[in-house]
Design a protein around this nucleic acid. Sequence first.
DNA 1: ACCGCAACTGAGACGCAGTCGCAATCGCTG
DNA 2: CAGCGATTGCGACTGCGTCTCAGTTGCGGT
Lengths: 180, 180
Amino acid sequence: MEKRELQIFRKYLERRSLKLTAERKALFDELFSRHEHVEADELLVRLRSKHKKISRATIYRTLELMVDSGIVGRLRIGEAGYRYERLRAGDHHDHLICDQCGKVIEFFEPQIESLQDEVAARHGFVLLSHTHQMRGICRSCRPRAKSGASGGASGAGASASASFEAAPARPVPIASRSRE
Amino acid sequence: MEKRELQIFRKYLERRSLKLTAERKALFDELFSRHEHVEADELLVRLRSKHKKISRATIYRTLELMVDSGIVGRLRIGEAGYRYERLRAGDHHDHLICDQCGKVIEFFEPQIESLQDEVAARHGFVLLSHTHQMRGICRSCRPRAKSGASGGASGAGASASASFEAAPARPVPIASRSRE
DNA sequence: ACCGCAACTGAGACGCAGTCGCAATCGCTG
DNA sequence: CAGCGATTGCGACTGCGTCTCAGTTGCGGT
């Protein structure tokens, strides 16, 4: 049976009289073949190594369609640029990232979700989406962890700590939650 | 009396035998003159309009020092690039952003903070920092709000919704909390 | 005073990630 | 099989930040 997300994407395209071309399908297959958080250029390289001819622009254009259709999430994890992840329908999660090895763990904490609604309401906001990333050192990196981001204000170590940036994700359409 | 953050910055520089030059001081003053979330180029423009001669490179270099020293926070709010905000010593907050007017509200919710620790622990992580952004429509934009990010999977409107990105912030050294 | 040197700075080149313009193609539809 | 909107690849381009480099500053030591 065809993947549910492919159906959704197909429908999304149809509604706008856009086509599910070979390039779009190839990108879909690549992205949905495994669960990960991948960069656009990585997808380009992979597809090309599979002898699919596709341009960078098309990758970006297609990813945008997928993000808009809701089947793909766009994140900012670390440094520059975006990463993309497939989303299973109705899914929602936030991210826990290891600063050392880059591993990404997904988590979902209902209590946090509802506290968010509360906070938003308290400020008169209608919540549409959110981004929540926690960064730290994972279990397997723990032993040899040492450096880490220089702490607050007071004394830090000696060597200049590389300033490692962090950044979150594209909104999770809150619809799925609130419209329950 | 001299601003506490300036003292911190001064000390940070001294420790590394760096200097508090006129340019650095000017940038500090600009950034700490009011509370906001500003872009690097905006700071450049402002300083120049005040007849201070300063180059783009210096702005960036100095902002990095400030971020490292802990007196300034670096965020990703919307689209590309970073925004900088002054941090009062020991302060911590997350952000609530209006997708319509761009207004940024800071919030702090102790319960969320501790739930985060719990989640991290559950996954064997040592938390170092986090980023938490909520996006929506603020009270004053509410009445005429309509468009918004296309919802999940199913039917969206007609016009192509501009894909508005979001992205969070530089870690808040968790030290201040856990080391309490 | 003067030297020496490390720290600073401005200007512009550079790099990366993503976007755009455009002409060539594709693939329905009538 | 002509018409036409959708699609694509290519390469130019942009925005934002970083790097290089040569010239300047300013403090410490003598």
